[in-house]
Design a protein around this nucleic acid. Sequence first.
DNA 1: GCCGTTTTCGGCCCGACTGTTTTCAGTCG
Length: 589
Amino acid sequence: MTETPASAPTPREVAKLLANIGVLLELNGADAFRARAFTFAGRALEGVDADLLALARADRLTTLRGIGPGIASVVKEYVLTGRSTIYEELRTATPLGLYDLLRVPGLGPKRIHTLYRELGVDGLDALEAAIDSGAVAALPGFGRKTAAKIAQGIPFARSSRQLRRYPEAMELASRLLDWAVQLEGVLAVEIVGAIRRRMEVVDRIELLASAEHPNAVLDAFQCFQDGSLEDAQGEDEALLTLSDGVFVRFRCVPPASFVAATVWETGSAAHVEALARLASERGASFTRDGLFVRGEPVPLERESDLYERLGLAYVPPELREGLGEVERAAAGPLPPLVERTDLRGTFHCHTTASDGKASLEEMAGAARERGWCYLGIADHSRSASYAGGLSLQEVEQQRRAIERLNRRFAKDERRPFRLFWGIESDILPDGSLDYPDDVLLGFDYVVASVHSSFGMSEEEMTKRMVRAVRHPATTILGHITGRLLLTRAGYSVDVEAVLRAVAEAGVIIEINANPHRLDLDWRDVRRAAELGILIAVNPDAHSVRELDNVAFGVNMARKAGLTPRQVLNTWPLDEVSGYFAKRKRKQGG
DNA sequence: GCCGTTTTCGGCCCGACTGTTTTCAGTCG
C-alpha cells in the first residue's frame, strides 16, 4: 500500500486539529475552560499566516496569542510528525456518535457527557431509545420538557449526519484529487458532482478520472489510507467511507468517455435527464459512457462540445440544477454569471470595535491588497452586547476614525479607495432598529439583521422584518433566515412576503457569504432577482481572512444566475457612493 | 490551558432564556 504524500500541516489544518481537540475535551467532560483554551487557540490560528514548522523548531510557538506551553507541545508534535497523541487518545475514547449529538438543538457538551456517562447514550439511536424509555427525563437536571425538546431535535440532527458544508467538502475533495492524480496511469481527474455545482452542502465527494486501464487505477485508489471500502455499484467505480464518515465515490473511465462522463457525473440528475431527453429527440443518445449517434461515439474535446451537439449554449456547472436552464440554453447564450474577479469591494465587515479580530486599518489594507476600491464596515450595534456592539460614543469614535483614514486614502490618486461607514443594526423584537433615527441616518448605509428572539411565530417574525425593511434607514437586509447550515434551521419567516416588502422599499438583500450561513438561500435569491432586487455579497468578515468568504457568496450568486450588474459589489466606487448618497437624500426628505 | 499595568492565582464575554429547581445549570447567540 502506498503512503499518501506527506507535507507539513498548514496553519488551517492545525487550527482544525485544535478545534477538534476542544470539542472532544468538552464531550469527555473535561474542564470547560481547558476545552475552551483549545477552541480559542484554534480560532486564533485560523487567521495567522505564520510558518508553524519554523516556529515549532525554534520553540517559539508560545509567541502566538492563545498558545501557551501546553498547546505549543501539541502543535509541535503535529507539525513535526503529522500526528497528535492527545487527539488520537481522545478520538479512541470517544464514540463517533457523540458528534451527532452535538447537532441536536438543546444538547450541549455538558448534557451529552451526562447522557453518555449515566445512560451510555453514544449516538442518536441510543438517545431516542433513552428518551422513549423515560430514562432521560428521570436524570437529575433534565426533566420532561427538556427530554421532549431534545426528542424534537433528533430528526434535524439525523438528516444532517452525513452532510458536509462546501468548504470542508472542497478541501477533502482537493486532497483526494491530489492523491488520485499521482496514481500510475491516471491521465486526468476532475472533482464532479454537487461540489462542482458549488452546492452549499453536499452528501458525498465525487471524483472522475480518466485512464487507459481504469481497473488498475480503481484498485490503487482503494488504498487511500484514511478510507474503508464499500461495495462498488458499477464496474468502473470505487466507493469509500472516510474515517470521519464522509462518503466518497471515485469513477475511472477510458479517455474517450471522459468529457461526456464529466457532464454526466457533474449532474444534477435532473439536468442530465433533460440533456438525455434532448439527445434522444435529436436521434442521438447520451449515456454515462458518452454521446452516441447511431451507436457511434461522438468525439468531444470539451464539455461545451457536448452542449453544442445538442443545440444548446454552454451551461456552467453552477446552473445545472434542472431549474429551466436547459430550456434557456436552447433559446440562446446564457447571460454571463458574476465572477469573483468582478467584485470591487464588499459591505458587511466587523472590526475590533465590536467582535472582529482585525482593526479598521488592517481590514482596509487587506481590502486594498485584494484590489478592491472600497470596503464597508458594519460592526454590531449596541443591543448585541455579546458581540461588543457599539455604544453611541463608540459610533462617534468610529466615524472619526473612518473619516481620518478616508482622508489618507484620498491622497493616493493612483489607487482610489474608500471606507464606507455602516452598521449592522439589530432588528429588535418589535421590528424597530437599534439607534435613534438621526444616528441611523448618519451612516453611509445600514445592514439590518435579526440576532435575538428567534422563537417568534412566522407571522410575528415576518411582521418584525417587514417593519425593519420599511425603516427609512435600512439599506441592506442581513442574513434573512438566520439559518446555520447543518446546525440550526432558520427562524420561521415568510420569505416571499419579506422579499415583496424589500422590492417595494428598494432595499438590498445580502447573500451572507459566511459558509455556515449562505443566507439568503440561492433558491430564494433567484426569486429576489425576479423581483428586481439588488444583491450584495457580504462576507460577514470578522477577520482579514474572512474577507475571502465572498468567494462562497459569489458561488451562490452564480447558482442564482446573477449577472455582474445585479450584484452591488461589482459597481464602481463612484456609483456605489452615488447610490448610498441618493438613498440618504430620499430618507432625509 | 491561557493570561497578566488586576501578573504566578484566579479569572476566563455576557445577558437572555428555559427548565429545573427553590437559587442555579446549561444552552444559545
